[in-house]
C-alpha cells in the first residue's frame, strides 16, 4: 500500500464513521456538526483524487454554506425531540437497514466483478485553470442552466419565506 493509498483509507474511515454518527444522532445540531466533519473529509478525498477546485468548492459550499444554513434553521425552529421506545426505533430502522444491506451486497458484487475495477488509479492533479477552461469550452450551456437554477432557487426561497399579508393577519388571528 502506498502513502496515498493509506491517506485514502484513513479519509474513507473518517467519512464513514462521521456519517454514521450524523445519521443516528437524535439532536439535530450534533448531526449537522458531524456532517461538517464528513464533508471536510470528502473534500480532502476530492483533492486526493485530483480535483483541487472541487475540493475547495466542497468545503466552501457544502461544509460552509449548506451546513450553516441547516444550523440556522435548526436553531430558528423549535423542534420537539420525541423519545421513542426501543421497539419503535427498531421497527423504523430495520426495513431501511435491511434494504440498504441487500443493495450494498448486490452493488458490491457488481462492482468487484466488473472488469477494470481492480485497476489502480494513478494520481493526477487537474489545475483549476485547466478545469475552468474545459468547463467553459465544453459545458457553457449547462453552466447557464445552473445559474438559472440558482436564480429560481433564490426566487423560490424568497417567495416561500416572505411574511404573511397584513389583511390575513388581521382576520386570521
Amino acid at each position: 500500500m502506498t502513502f496515498y493509498g493509506l491517506i485514502f483509507y484513513v479519509l474513507a474511515a473518517v467519512t464513514l464513521v462521521s456519517t454514521v454518527l450524523a445519521i443516528t444522532r437524535r439532536l439535530l445540531v450534533h448531526a449537522v456538526v458531524y456532517l461538517i466533519i464528513s464533508f471536510f473529509a470528502t473534500g480532502l478525498l476530492f483533492y486526493l483524487l485530483g480535483a483541487p477546485f472541487l475540493a475547495a468548492l466542497e468545503v466552501i459550499i457544502y461544509a460552509g454554506a449548506i451546513m450553516v444554513l441547516f444550523l440556522f434553521i435548526v436553531m430558528t425552529l423549535r423542534i420537539e425531540s420525541s423519545k421513542k421506545s426501543a421497539r419503535e426505533t427498531f421497527r423504523r430502522w430495520f426495513p431501511a437497514i435491511l434494504l440498504g444491506a441487500i443493495s450494498l451486497l448486490v452493488s458490491g458484487l457488481l462492482v468487484f466483478e466488473a472488469p477494470g475495477s481492480r485497476m489502480g488509479l494513478n494520481a493526477r492533479l487537474v489545475p483549476p485553470a485547466v478545469f475552468g477552461r474545459y468547463v467553459f469550452e465544453r459545458y457553457w450551456f449547462p453552466v447557464e442552466i445552473a445559474s438559472f437554477l440558482l436564480l429560481i432557487g433564490l426566487v423560490g426561497a424568497l417567495y416561500l419565506g416572505r411574511q404573511e399579508q397584513r389583511p390575513e393577519e388581521g382576520t386570521g388571528g
Partner: peptide, 15 residues
C-alpha cells in the same frame, strides 16, 4: 498506483 477504482466506487456506494 493509489487505490483500486473499485474501492472508490464502494465507498461512494456505502455513503
Amino acid at each position: 498506483m493509489m487505490v483500486p477504482y473499485g474501492n472508490v466506487l464502494l465507498l461512494a456506494i456505502i455513503l
